[in-house]
Design a protein around this nucleic acid. Structure first.
Length: 488
DNA sequence: ATTAGGG
DNA sequence: CCCTAAT
């Protein structure tokens, strides 16, 4: 009896999974036929009715997933177009946001269902007739028992969960569930995970030079083979409950760090994550609620679509809980969990870091040369319109850092001191000399507010009109009006 | 809402 | 990168 029961709980999981995959990759409004039926069936699923067979759902889902060459090519087409437009619009973010929204609601319902299942785990299925599990279509390997289920999972997942210390017998079922949760996170349902795959590809330099937008394209451009593989895997995994994004983030962290270290990308704040995970051993239950608000993106460095909502400027709040995105839901949880200890550690603050690519720096330099220092909003509008991350403040911060780097370089040239050499060596990504040059020139034309006095005093006289850089001259009409704080 | 400055 | 104060 127990056996059948497990099977049944697996079935809706699979269906749910499939639907989510669909949601993830097809922004609605195309192909009313299959999509509608899927959505409808999803709805029914939530209500506990299964008018369509398991068979049907799988087929339609696969059909959609294969959309590459079938009649549903429209989906891919649209995605491609979107990706192509990345430089102009931010729609991709919206898409993913939409997905989050749609899945969040489903998950809410699903959680309820899940609780039911667990609570009557040992009881014979009362509503068993609803679930059909045609052997012919069974894509789920070893769904017949808990141990089998665990075997179906990748080593990493298993290790991770063991690491998390799910030793409690009472939690055994939960543990199984979590195995699948984690495995799901590695199945490529979430784009960031897919990106890991991409990032492990050999050509690191290229990635570095690419814009993050371009990352996105790469990710979406994954060969259909890989896609199929991933989705196939995801569908075949039994999953009882979708993890919160925070959960995924925590437990996939080690992998991210591995990738980063291979690439020599400094992990920065990520180290804190380790500590956090460690501490979670003791408070398993808290794992879900107590994590940062970021999606699997983690240190945004590796993310493709990063929808990091900036804390400083919260967009309009939607009072209705059901309408909140998953991130916001997590935040909501956080509010309750954190009520007691509101203090935020440094680790919490610096969770989102996105490495500045060379092209971004160039854009920034261009922007400064055009607008001058201080009009960060304008620069953002003109040069970083496509990157939702990078707020004007970020630009300013980056510029500050660039200047710092330049001055460091200068010091090195002046007196080749060892300290400075070391500092430069440890610098994350030594900037090309040309860029450094431009920055230095701009620095003299548009001195950064704070350094203004020091620079002016030390450099005795700055010669404004003597700028060699061409684009600065081109932009000078604008730049000159800008923010020349009279040095009183 | 934007910017500067500090952490 | 985040936060806060000032504008």
């Amino acid at each position: 009896m127990t056996k059948t029961n497990v099977d049944e709980s697996a079935v809706p999981a699979i269906k749910n999974e499939a639907v989510e995959v669909e949601n993830l990759h097809a922004e609605p409004k195309r192909d009313p036929d299959s999509l509608d039926s899927i959505l409808r069936s999803e709805k029914c699923l939530q209500m506990g009715e299964y008018p369509f067979g398991y068979d049907f759902d799988l087929k339609s889902c696969y059909g959609v997933l294969d959309s590459g060459e079938t009649r549903e090519g429209e989906h891919d087409l649209k995605l491609e177009v979107l990706d192509g437009l990345l430089d102009e619009v931010d729609e991709v973010d919206d898409i993913h946001a939409a997905n989050d929204l749609s899945t969040a609601c489903t998950d809410f319902l699903w959680d309820i269902e899940y609780v039911e299942k667990v609570s009557e785990f040992s009881c014979p299925p009362r509503e068993g007739s609803r679930f059909r599990n045609p052997p012919s279509e069974s894509h789920s390997p070893g769904c017949s028992g808990s141990s089998n289920g665990a075997n179906g999972v990748s080593d990493t997942s298993t290790a991770t969960i063991l690491e998390s210390g799910c030793k409690n017998d009472l939690l055994e079922n939960v543990a199984i569930c979590e195995l699948h949760i984690v495995s799901r996170s590695e199945c490529g349902c979430h784009l960031p995970v897919q990106e890991q795959i991409c990032l492990s590809s050999p050509d690191t330099r290229n990635l570095d030079d690419l814009d993050n937008d371009e990352h996105c394209i790469i990710v979406n451009g994954m060969s259909s083979d890989e896609k199929e593989k991933n989705f196939g895997a995801s569908i075949s995994q039994k999953r009882l409950r979708k993890p919160t994004r925070r959960f995924i983030e925590e437990f996939s962290k080690p992998k991210l760090i591995d990738v980063m270290e291979i690439q020599n990308i400094p992990t920065g704040a990520s180290k804190d994550k380790y500590l956090k995970v460690e501490s979670c051993k003791e408070h398993q239950v808290r794992v879900v609620a107590d994590q940062g608000e970021g999606p699997l993106s983690g240190t945004g460095t590796l993310t493709s679509h990063e929808t990091r909502p900036r804390r400083g400027r919260p967009k309009k709040f939607t009072p209705v809980l059901d309408l909140l995105s998953e991130d916001e839901l997590s935040d909501f949880d956080d509010e309750h969990v954190n009520l007691g200890r509101r203090s935020k550690t440094v680790a919490d603050r610096r969770k989102h870091q996105r490495m500045w690519t060379l092209s971004e720096v160039l854009k920034l330099v261009d922007g400064v040369s055009q607008y001058g220092v201080g009009r960060w909003t304008d620069i953002k509008r003109l040069f970083f319109a496509s990157s939702a991350y990078r707020t004007p403040v970020d630009l300013r911060d980056k510029w500050r850092n660039l200047l710092r780097a330049c001055s460091l370089e200068k010091q090195k040239q002046k007196n080749g001191r060892k300290e400075i050499e070391d500092k430069l060596k440890h610098a994350v990504r030594p900037l090309p000399k040309s860029v450094l040059c431009r920055i230095r020139e701009l620095a003299t034309v548009h001195p950064y507010p704070k350094d203004r006095n020091t620079k002016l005093s030390r450099g005795s006289h700055v010669s404004p009109p003597t700028v060699s850089s061409t684009e600065v001259d081109l932009a000078s009409p604008v730049a000159r009006n800008v923010r020349r704080k009279k040095s009183s």
